[in-house]
Write a protein that binds this DNA or RNA. Sequence first.
DNA 1: ATGGTTGAAGATCAA
Length: 255
Amino acid sequence: MKIASWNVNSLRVRLPHLLDWLKAAEPDVVGIQETKCVDEQFPFAELEAAGYFAAHNGQKTYNGVALLARQPLTEVCRDMECFADEQRRVIAATVGGVRVVNVYVVNGQAVGSEKYDYKLRWLAGLRQYLGEELQKYPKLAVTGDYNIAPAPEDTHDPAVWEGGILCSEPERAAFRALLDLGLKDSFRLFEQPAASFTWWDYRQAAFRRNMGLRIDHILASDALAAACTGVRVHLEPRRLERPSDHAPVVSEFTV
DNA sequence: ATGGTTGAAGATCAA
């Protein structure tokens, strides 16, 4: 089973890229972030024609998350019961015996800001929620835009990023607290190329210069991580005209 | 030189 995560930065704009990529990469499950549309605007018909079932947790203008799968999605949940939130940032479903939680973590804007406090509260809620999910579902994958670069090597230039938003110690501690539940950062189960990133700012030709961060992750429970055979960032969609600022990440499992 | 780009909304905000 290939499980992917991709922040598309507007699904309506990026649908052609998504459909082309689904055909080329053939993922079994895809967690999508920043659909930026309401459920009525979600392209269910186009995705069904491409061979995918879909579930969406939509919001006008901002946020919005979806799960796509080649098998039916069951037990779909759109809320963390332990953390009330008006922003649509979570969707979970069961696919082929694997529980998949897809998240769009709060960006946080700047360390010390009101949004940063919300980010840390939100991550504490996510930790509680994932703990509960792990009790119910031993085989758990958590796809998402975490808006956290876990370590200095996940940034193109630690001198620029260390201590700032996406790279501050409280954010990294919150990320480690998720791993402490019994989850693995699947990307780091394998040897990886140096300077592997998943997001590059649209400005300053950042992608061409590989000035990126690794902030999109697929966490796997220990039971699922044991079945992981490889993880890779797909750079091709980021090279297209009018791309998302994020590239998809794909983890492969023998389940 | 406190810059730059994109998306959605709507004449600004979030990322």
